[in-house]
Design a binder for these strands. Structure first.
Lengths: 219, 219
DNA sequence: CAAGTATTCAATAAATATATTGAATACTTG
DNA sequence: CAAGTATTCAATATATTTATTGAATACTTG
């Protein structure tokens, strides 16, 4: 193989993988799958996609070694191919949110709207863990919590939150988290709880970011 | 802004940046620019692109905060926007080469063809630096060497290599490097020098990878 | 095995990305 | 300021990507 041929082949292969990532529907699917495996139906429920369209996007991701599938009964369950991809994906998001002014602006506007500007970072959270006055609240669906959660967190899915208000003490500082920086469940929880007079902030990141950080530490 | 609107805006923005990266011509431009700033003409010379086409691709990269430009006389010089992008780019390549079977195969075939399989890694290089019997050889064009190079390296651009053969001792172990894993200059140098009876291997990575590693260390 | 459900496939139209061509612009230098 | 050079712009044809639709397949369960 000549030099140019080789280069072209490598860049085309690389571009092909990046093309698979460069679509908003597929990025949302990736976020879903970083919370654990999901069936096609599961993905359709929390996106605006039709079943056929979701299936097509899943094929694209699968053909590019980003996700893998497993069949059980009638269902096909998809999941991220490995944690290395998760780390790469978070690196991309971190760069984009930090360097692309457009994205930074959208993010800040959202946070302002939700008074979520004084969010807690993962590093800050480290210093708070173990403190009796802090309650770490996971507001994702139960199945996602069961697949994995931040050590010490308590699971109260968003749709059950109202019913569990009585369980919280107004003395405690509540830190709510969900799927990641683009997930709005934690914002909703903060809004609801602060209206009721609780001390509450959101975590800037979500479960997958915490997980990748743990993997880094234990490497 | 509603939750779905926010999510869509973020994923679309992210997808837009990734679209800018998902084209082989633009990836090659990025590799060129990780060796230092280049004019449009400079880029055209080492790619298969027409001037107008290269210019268009450069606009796309610029509009997505991946590269920046500076004007001097008639020339416009482009360069990567910052080292954070360089680190992200290398992370993408590392994932792709390690996880995408197709790319791994192409890479291995190239290395076999060039008997470059026993390449030296950056980590190995660390243990060799300072050894009097090792000669670290930078075969990139002089201007790229001058912009930055691995500490202790000697610059002999590929096209001058033949004329400098007499400078090398056959007792020394020569390590040749160039722009990065997809660059074939080092492969050519290894081929040429080993045919003449020198002990020579290539560095698996190139100057930008060394640079990012240094930045990591000094962080 | 019939009925129901989950997923994929195939065909299509619309939207977007790409390379090419031939100007137009901007700048330098004699 | 005229001639030359580097870069960008605008228009176009082609290729690729995308969402939609309706059907086909695969599997489960009664």
């Amino acid at each position: 193989m000549e030099g140019r041929e080789f280069k072209d082949a490598m860049y085309e292969g690389l571009a092909k993988m990046l093309k698979a990532l460069s679509n908003s529907a597929r990025l949302e699917i990736i976020e879903m799958l970083s919370q654990g495996e999901k069936s096609v139906e599961g993905i359709v429920q929390s996106t605006n996609l039709s079943v056929a369209n979701a299936s097509q996007h899943l094929q694209v991701l699968k053909n590019n070694n980003i996700i893998k599938s497993r069949k059980e009964k009638q269902y096909v369950f998809y999941s991220l191919v490995n944690d290395d991809f998760l780390a790469l994906y978070q690196h991309i998001i971190k760069y984009a949110v930090g360097e692309i002014a457009e994205l930074e602006k959208i993010m800040n506007r959202q946070r302002e709207d939700n008074k979520a500007l004084n969010a807690v970072s993962l590093d800050e959270l480290d210093t708070m863990i173990g403190d009796d006055h802090v309650l770490l609240l996971d507001v994702r669906p139960k199945t996602e919590f069961e697949f994995g959660h931040i050590t010490g967190a308590v699971s109260i899915p968003m749709n059950e939150l109202m019913a569990h208000l009585k369980d919280f003490s107004k003395d405690k500082e509540i830190i709510a988290y969900c799927r990641g920086p683009f997930c709005v469940l934690a914002d909703e929880a903060v809004k609801m709880l602060s209206e009721k007079g609780y001390k509450v902030r959101r975590l800037n990141e979500g479960y997958p970011e915490w997980k990748v950080k743990q993997l880094e530490i234990n490497k």
